[in-house]
């Protein structure tokens, strides 16, 4: 890599944290506000891509030891399994459930199976997007 990437790298270090936080916010809030699995996943992927652009691929790979292909597959698996969860309770495939629970810190919180499904979606999106970009950039 060229030596004059210092500015980009310093900015990236800060930006990535912000983007990650923001994407988690987008993802968690997706049920009630704009956001959700797709957007959360894509913005996370964008952050990872930014990391790859700013730093060496090898360096990032050393620090993020995730096989993104498997991550995508895991996402699909989670989504399918939530679908099967409904079947276990005698409902149609992919019936989602939700309820409210008092949790220690958060107070009254909504718990939904849709969130798990959305997690699957987000993982699939992250996995695929990063996998595509990585594959291409590795092709020399």
């Amino acid at each position: 890599m060229k030596p004059n990437d210092v500015i980009l790298q310093s900015v990236t270090k800060v930006a990535v944290v912000i983007i990650f936080t923001f994407s988690i916010y987008l993802f968690m809030n997706g049920h009630h506000n704009p956001g959700g699995g797709f957007i959360g996943g894509l913005s996370t992927a964008a952050a990872v891509v930014l990391l790859y652009l700013a730093f060496d691929i090898e360096k990032v790979r050393e620090n993020i030891r995730i096989d993104f292909k498997k991550l995508a597959a895991l996402g699909v698996l989670i989504a399918v399994c939530t679908g099967l969860g409904g079947v276990l309770f005698g409902e149609e495939f992919l019936t989602q459930a939700f309820g409210y629970k008092e949790l220690p810190i958060f107070g009254k919180t909504e718990l939904t199976s849709a969130l798990i499904f959305d997690t699957g979606v987000a993982l699939a999106v992250i996995g695929t997007a990063v996998n595509i970009i990585l594959s291409i950039s590795e092709d020399r």
Partner: peptide, 15 residues
């Protein structure tokens, strides 16, 4: 249980 209709369609109604 969702206030974002688009998201509800995506993950629930048309999951």
């Amino acid at each position: 249980g969702a206030k974002n209709i688009v998201n509800a369609i995506l993950v629930d109604f048309r999951g």
